[in-house]
Simulated scan of single mutants.
Amino acid sequence: MAIHTSTEDGGKTLVLNVSGYFDFSLHKDFRQAYKGSEGVRRFVVDLRETEYMDSSALGMLLLLREFATDQGGEVVLRNCTREVRKILEIANFQRLFQIEE
């Protein structure tokens, strides 16, 4: 379980790749991954390697959304597995986030 970051669009997009279990144990690392990212307008959370996410992960996504909105940016959820997509839909996150294939 880990979080790896990379940038796209000349640094305007920050990509956070979450692998393994996305739960409370990643809270500090997830927050550190995007804090201090001035100039970023788009935050992409890539969930391709995410096996499972719990309610604390949903809360972390909401905190990221709040952070991005304060900077005039947006959050996109990308490459959700079927299991993760089901969790996001149950929580109605498709109303709050753009979800890409």
Rank of each mutant, 00 (worst) to 15 (best):
M53N: 02
D70E: 15
R42Q: 09
T7R: 10
T5L: 05
V18P: 01
N79F: 00
A68W: 08
N17G: 10
V40C: 03
L64H: 09
E100C: 10
K35G: 01
R85Y: 06
G73I: 08
Y34C: 06
F97D: 03
E49T: 07
L96T: 12
N79Y: 00
K35Y: 04
E100S: 12
R41P: 00
S37T: 12
N17M: 07
M53R: 05
I87Y: 06
L47E: 04
H4R: 14
L96C: 05
A68E: 05
F30R: 08
T5S: 12
I99G: 08
L62M: 14
D9C: 03
Y21H: 12
I90H: 03
E49K: 14
R41T: 14
Y21C: 02
D54V: 08
F24L: 12
D23F: 04
V76Y: 07
V45C: 09
A33E: 02
R31L: 10
G10C: 07
G10R: 05
V84T: 10
E51I: 02
V18H: 02
I3G: 05
Y34W: 11
H4L: 12
F97S: 06
A91F: 07
F43I: 04
G72K: 08
E49L: 13
R31W: 00
E83Y: 04
D23K: 11
T69N: 10
V44W: 11
S55N: 07
L62P: 01
Q98P: 00
S6W: 02
N79R: 15
T13G: 04
K28P: 00
E100F: 00
Y52D: 03
L77W: 03
R82K: 14
V15W: 09
D54A: 13
D70I: 00
L88G: 09
S6D: 11
S56D: 08
T7C: 02
R78M: 08
L96P: 01
D29P: 01
G10T: 08
M1E: 11
A57H: 08
G36Y: 10
F43V: 04
I3D: 04
Q32V: 06
Y34R: 06
A68C: 08
I99L: 13
T69H: 11
F93H: 05
A68V: 06
I99H: 10
G36Q: 06
